[in-house]
Design a protein around this nucleic acid. Structure first.
Length: 1080
RNA sequence: GGGGCUGUAGCUCAGGUUGGUUAGAGCGCACGCCUGAUAAGCGUGAGGUCGGUGGUUCAAUUCCACCCAGCCCCA
């Protein structure tokens, strides 16, 4: 006969390995997709990782989220295809390769050869692919690793090119300038990532400069800057149109009287001497004013006062620091450049690629730009233009390799004009369900609101080449965007290999393709690569090689129902997916997105290799199992908050949740095997089952409903916690309270009812098995999206014996919350029962009477929250739990109940105002009689502070506190009193229970099987002996004893003499062989 | 420097949208109970100026302002 497996303490890592093998052998993952053919699809997009680094524990977090929703939706009947992907381009790859090859500059890379360099990148990028695949499989992340999309493959690049072509056709692709951080030290533009590596605290000059107002003698605009080297290129001054400015007269210690113009608010910060305000006006009045250029190097290029060297109004001007008059050099600052573009200011750039001034600026010609600070400052001082010179400590970016300062510099770049579609992107974003909501509205929403055009160009080597060819004809601005390999073939003809398979769309091959332009020039590719984020944002289309292939697959899987990545992707993947989908398809790319936070170490610090506090994912899985890690990361805190990863947390979880569930199963299996339960009978109607069973079934459906609601809301934490609570209730209340039903032996069933915990009817027992089985099976399903291994093990271990519905839990249907098996009133009153029981146990504790000693009765104070009728229905459970014979009730308003009163502040506060404090004082001191009267009439008149206060019904809250002459305990609304009067009969019963406990101890000591029959001999002091004799039948039944005989000298396989209080008891137990038992 | 998130018991977290005078849970700890789940189970207890300061209010952990700390993103 099939038996439930009863393993020793489970090793979860081993169990998981077994499950993995079984999945593999039976193609469960494949089947979970194939068997859903024809069902509605649920689309998930895998954000591609870069496999040139090792996976960390945070990847387990992200992947646990992805996996769980895919598994959940599969169980709901959807078909969920999951294509893996690899992000293979970009700077991290190049940096790694440069380190390996010891290349330090662009020049060195180019000398080395782009082709060889890119070959090295191509190899490096999948260096750890196997490690990633291993982790993916071992942690139970189901994704199709055999057919991933790879961003460097020709098909993928072709789809990306197609997208760019669409953008061009919508007239949204253009060439412009982007201010980028340029490192003159290494002659290269740095990416934002590299820039952020190089911020250093730097001491820079802080200078205040006089700009002479044209046509007004001895009058100056006072401007401030921390980069004097940019003053050569000064093009304009900016003021805040709404700010208040003043014209002051003062006496300069060195130069004598003069007039200065600056923002009023900053006056006292800037001007140290005494001054007199001559005029006050708004910034807008200054707009258009002309001033004399500081240097005349560029005066031949622009007309002062018209093209340049005038005052303009700009919102960027603030009064946080400086003077409220901002020196503008559009060549050297992002904000300056933006304003310059708007106003059509000229660009004065006298610095060459090496960071040195050109001959254009004779004063500093040949000088390194930073070294020019001092020369220029000295020059201006000499010429009387320097008002004040201080130093300023701030963060300034440096070249992360060389340590030399960066300068921001306008670089030619190709853009997607996303600003044109900003409103549409915002609108579409509003339809996306963000978890947590705050990121969609906040970080992402604001980012969209402040959208700037997407600068695609990257001056790098390893990436998708920008498919733009420009005519090299002087003065021509003709360009062509190539949107497919065919188109390229059409244009470049036989420069391409005949075989499509041999085409590589990377540099340097594409750089060599040229053709004749319509204007007679030669079409040459621009040297740029595109931003790698465009690569990954193109995956909904490029993973299918859309539109060249797989149109159906694409259409069935766009947009995604669900994606999940880390919060760092806000401006990365989340944006690139959204922008491309909006621009090209006027759609969202994803409907639901779960954002996960960081994984911090135990102390809340960021994990980093240098700190040595990283957690090795394989180690965690080997030690605790993937399920424990997954469950921990889902249940401990919402995954979008930073999670503290602690081994202790894992250990606790293994012991509490998984350990408890394991124990419930083992208990169930032990007795089910003894009784041969295999769920062969029909399912018992729930309404025919005992109260306790109906309760846990109701809790199961409530839990199922809660789990489903939480998962539908993409909130795995609430779901996990609901399952945890259910398992706690299943174990610590349902199963514990059901134990007697399980161990009632078959034989004794025929003996009819005996004492407490004795025999029960067969139907009751069947109900216990069915109920526990159903709960375990449902738990296996409910937990399996998060803990796929344990869920599978539990499900299969159960269903192997009972021939369950599906081969695997992951092929089964997610449980359904059955409304008709829920009973809220029952759940409420069982809560009441637990509360009364725990309060009573607390009383026993105080009275120092152990639970084995039966007590005559307990008294429950009834009231609104504690209705007698409800308690009465759960009376048996309570009495059995606390070992008390009877329950009685006393009305909350009864005279024997003493009470206290407190004001209902929410009612009285608004009415009485300040007086409420004094009323509180008075009310809390009211005696029982006054409270009784109030309870009776609902009225009370107080005199407080000389004022008369009338109180009506509900103005006071009355609480029961005690019952005269009883031991009383209170817990919330529940008040319980315990009668501790032990009659001789109760005493005898208590002793009999003591006897049973000792016999059971001996059974155990002697290693008898749970089902073994025994013979007991005993010798006890008089009261003890009388008690055992009086309860002999019951004792025999409880201990499976065929005989229970007094003996002067008890013998057997286990013999011991016990002291029980004042009593003495010697016992011997002997096992009865099976045939002997049959005859008995 | 700008923006954001977080701050509640030793630890991990609820709660707080609607302010109400006794702020909860689990783990850990201590004590006890139970003993046919036993390297399990149950109960009780200790433990908190709800990050700080100020404001609004009869009343603030909750609302407002400022500050501090940790982290993230951006510059």
């Amino acid at each position: 006969m099939a038996q439930f497996d009863t393993p020793d303490q489970l090793s979860l890592p081993n169990l998981e390995e077994d499950v993995l093998d079984w999945w593999q052998d039976h193609n469960i993952f494949e089947r979970s997709i194939e068997e859903r053919d024809g069902q509605p699809t649920y689309t998930f997009y895998e954000g591609p990782p870069t496999a040139n680094g090792k996976p960390g524990i945070h990847h387990v977090l992200a992947r646990a989220i992805k996996d769980l929703f895919c598994r959940y939706k599969t169980m709901q009947g959807y078909q969920v295809a999951r294509k893996a992907g690899w992000d293979t381009h970009g700077l991290p790859v190049e940096i790694e390769v440069e380190e390996e090859l010891e290349l330090e500059s662009r020049a060195q890379v180019e000398d080395f050869g782009i082709e060889k360099y890119n070959d090295a990148c191509r190899e490096s990028v999948l260096e750890y692919k196997d490690l990633w695949d291993t982790l993916t499989q071992r942690m139970g992340y189901w994704v199709d690793l055999d057919d991933p999309y790879v961003t460097f493959e020709t098909d993928y690049i072709e789809s990306v090119w197609w997208l760019l072509k669409q953008i061009e056709e919508e007239d949204l692709l253009y060439k412009g300038h982007k201010i980028q951080w340029y490192s003159p030290g290494s002659h290269t533009v740095l990416s934002s990532h590299e820039v952020s590596l190089g911020y250093e605290e730097t001491q820079d000059p802080s200078v205040y400069i006089r700009f002479p107002v044209a046509g007004e003698a001895n009058t100056y605009f006072l401007a401030w800057t921390t980069t004097p080297w940019t003053l050569i290129s000064n093009t304009a001054l900016a003021v805040g149109p709404d700010l208040t400015y003043v014209k002051i007269h003062h006496e300069d210690p060195h130069r004598g009287p003069e007039t200065l113009i600056l923002a009023e608010e900053l006056l006292d910060d800037v001007v140290d001497e005494e001054y007199a305000v001559e005029e006050t006006f708004e910034g807008s009045e200054l707009i258009g004013a002309e001033y004399e250029p500081l240097y005349d190097y560029f005066t031949d290029r622009a007309e002062p006062g018209e093209d340049a060297w005038y005052v303009l109004g700009a919102d960027i001007v603030s009064t946080d620091e400086g003077t409220g008059v901002v020196h503008m050099a559009p060549a050297f600052g992002e904000e300056d450049y933006a304003v310059g573009q708007e106003r059509d200011l000229p660009l004065f750039n006298p610095i060459d690629k090496d960071g040195e001034f050109t001959d254009e600026a004779s004063l500093v010609a040949g000088t390194w730009f930073k070294d020019a600070d001092k020369i220029i400052t000295d020059d201006l001082k000499e010429r009387g233009r320097l008002y004040k010179h201080e130093t300023y400590l701030h963060n300034y970016p440096h070249d992360w390799r060389k340590g030399t300062p960066l300068m921001s510099y306008p670089v030619e770049s190709w853009f997607v004009e996303t600003t044109k579609l900003k409103d549409r992107m915002v609108e579409l974003n509003d339809t996306i369900n963000w978890q947590p909501e705050a990121i969609g509205e906040g970080r992402f929403g604001e980012w969209l609101e402040n959208n700037v055009d997407w600068a695609l160009s990257r001056r790098r080597y390893w990436g998708t080449p920008l498919p733009v060819w420009e005519s090299d004809k002087e003065g021509s601005d003709h360009y062509e965007v190539v949107g497919s390999v065919d188109e390229l073939r059409e244009k470049a003809g036989d420069q391409l290999p005949d075989d499509d398979e041999e085409i590589d769309l990377h540099r340097p091959f594409v750089d060599e393709l040229t053709w004749e332009g319509p204007d007679g020039g030669t079409m040459r590719r621009v040297p740029d690569l595109i931003d790698v984020w465009f690569d990954s944002g193109a995956m909904p289309y490029a993973q299918w090689h859309y539109p060249f292939e797989n149109k159906d697959a694409f259409e069935a899987n766009f947009p995604a129902n669900f994606i999940a990545e880390g919060v760092d992707q806000t401006r990365g993947w989340f944006y690139s997916l959204h922008a491309i989908a909006t621009v090209v398809f006027d759609e969202v790319a994803y409907e639901n997105v779960v954002v996960n936070g960081l994984v911090l170490d135990e102390d809340g610090n960021k994990m980093s290799k240098s700190k040595g506090n990283t957690v090795e994912p394989f180690q965690v899985i080997d030690d605790y199992g993937a399920d424990v890690a997954r469950w921990f990361m889902m249940s401990n805190a919402p995954p979008w908050e930073s999670i503290r990863f602690s081994e202790r947390g894992l250990r606790d979880l293994r012991r509490t949740f998984f350990g408890t569930l394991e124990n419930v199963y083992r208990f169930f299996a032990t007795y089910a095997n003894i009784d041969g339960f295999r769920f062969q009978n029909d399912r018992m109607p729930v309404e025919e089952r005992p109260e306790l069973d109906r309760w846990i079934i109701s809790r199961l459906h409530t839990t199922t409903q809660a789990v489903e609601a939480a998962l539908e809301d993409y909130d795995p934490t609430t779901a996990a916690r609901a399952v945890e609570d259910f398992v706690e209730e299943l174990s610590n209340w349902h199963l514990r309270r059901s134990r007697s039903r399980f161990w009632a032996s078959k034989k004794s069933e025929q003996n009819g009812p005996a004492g407490q915990g004795g025999t029960v009817a067969a139907a009751q027992k069947e109900a216990a098995y069915q109920t526990t089985y159903e709960c375990l099976e449902a738990t296996a399903k409910l937990m399996s999206p998060i803990a796929p291994f344990f869920g599978e093990w539990l499900y299969r271990t159960l269903s192997e014996v009972t021939a369950g519905e599906a081969d695997s839990v992951h092929l089964a249907a997610f449980p359904e919350a059955k409304e008709d098996e829920r009973d809220e009133a029952l759940e409420r009153r069982m809560g009441l029962a637990r509360s009364i029981a725990s309060t009573t146990l607390s009383l026993r504790n105080q009275a120092e009477i152990n639970v084995r000693q039966p007590l005559p009765r307990l008294l429950v104070v009834t009231g609104t929250g504690v209705p007698e009728a409800e308690v009465e229905q759960v009376k048996d459970v309570i009495l059995d739990e606390v070992n008390v014979k009877a329950i009685e009730y006393v009305e909350h308003s009864s005279e024997v109940v003493s009470r206290s009163a407190k004001p209902d502040f929410s009612r009285l506060g608004p009415r009485l105002g300040d007086l409420v404090k004094d009323v509180n004082q008075t009310v809390r001191q009211l005696d029982d009689e006054t409270i009784d009267a109030y309870v009776e009439t609902g009225e009370l008149t107080l005199t407080v502070d000389g004022e008369t206060v009338e109180l009506g019904p509900d103005d006071l809250i009355i609480q029961s506190e005690g019952i005269e002459g009883w031991l009383v305990e209170q817990e919330g609304e529940v008040t319980v009193a315990l009668d501790t009067d032990i009659t001789p009969e109760l005493r005898a019963e208590g002793l009999a229970r003591e006897g049973v406990k000792r016999i059971q101890d001996l059974r155990k000591e002697a290693n008898f099987e749970v089902t073994d029959r025994i013979v007991v001999a005993y010798d006890g002091s008089s009261q003890m002996a009388d008690a055992l004799a009086a309860h002999a039948d019951w004792i025999r039944n409880e201990t499976l004893a065929l005989e229970l005989q007094p003996s002067d000298e008890p013998t057997g396989e286990a013999v011991e003499t016990f002291e029980v209080g004042d009593e003495r008891l010697a016992i011997g137990v002997r096992r009865v062989e099976a045939d002997e038992a049959m005859n008995a």
